[in-house]
């Protein structure tokens, strides 16, 4: 299997090139003001500040999601370095951390493309390391983070002004729900305990 870099994986629907934005048109996608900002003309944006606000909101939502992804990356690092994981659990942790890195790359790139400033990872995170004593503890901790992330994306999807961003968030949500199920399965729990996520 060849190794692909993160950008190869960026789904087509988050192509934020100016052309795709313009062609989508209409309210609920990117507003005229936002498109003007992207193309470097700020006159329109000033005439229509509400549109810039809408875009600004999307950027803030993306940055909140990015912050949560960075936390997950750091958490998997703690898990992987804990020495508590056997081979198969470690493989999962490394693979899932890789996915979170791809999510973070995509989110940061999108924030920049929308004219925002991507948040930087925190210097240190507060993790319950004192409670992580076995492989199951680490997997359970990872599962709780994945579940939290799914709920967070679920709560954010309806808010994006740009429907492409809502779709991208849903795509990430699907991936993280799979992580959650696989981790639960590895813990011997019912991998899919209910028909709906909340």
């Amino acid at each position: 299997m060849t190794k692909k870099n993160a950008s190869t994986f960026i789904p087509k629907f988050v192509d934020l090139s100016r052309r795709s934005m313009l062609s989508l048109g209409g309210k609920g996608i990117l507003s005229a003001g936002a498109v003007a900002l992207l193309s470097g003309s700020e006159t329109l944006a000033l005439v229509n500040p509400a549109s810039a606000d809408e875009m600004n909101e999307d950027v803030q939502f993306l940055n909140a999601a990015l912050g949560a992804e960075q936390e997950a990356i750091a958490a998997y690092q703690v898990g992987a370095e804990s020495g508590l994981l056997g081979k198969s659990a470690l493989d999962l942790a490394v693979q899932f951390q890789g996915h979170h890195k791809e999510h973070a790359t995509l989110l940061a790139k999108t924030v920049t493309q929308l004219g925002g400033k991507a948040v930087a990872p925190k210097m240190d995170y507060h993790f319950p390391v004192e409670k992580l004593k076995t492989e199951a503890d680490v997997l359970g901790f990872a599962a709780s983070l994945e579940k939290g992330a799914v709920s967070a994306y679920l709560g954010a999807v309806p808010l994006f002004t740009n429907r492409d961003l809502a779709q991208a968030a849903a795509s990430i949500l699907g991936d993280e729900a799979m992580h959650w199920a696989v981790l639960r399965s590895a813990l011997g729990q019912n991998p899919v305990p209910s028909a709906f996520m909340s």
Binding site: A64, G67, A68, E71, H126, S144, L145, K147, G148, A149, V150, S151, A152, Y153, G155, S198
Partner: peptide
């Protein structure tokens, strides 16, 4: 249990994304 909808970003006793 419903608080699980918030713990992607919040904890009771320390700051995270929220």
């Amino acid at each position: 249990r419903l608080y699980g909808r918030c713990t992607g970003c919040h904890s009771l006793d320390y700051d995270r994304t929220g």
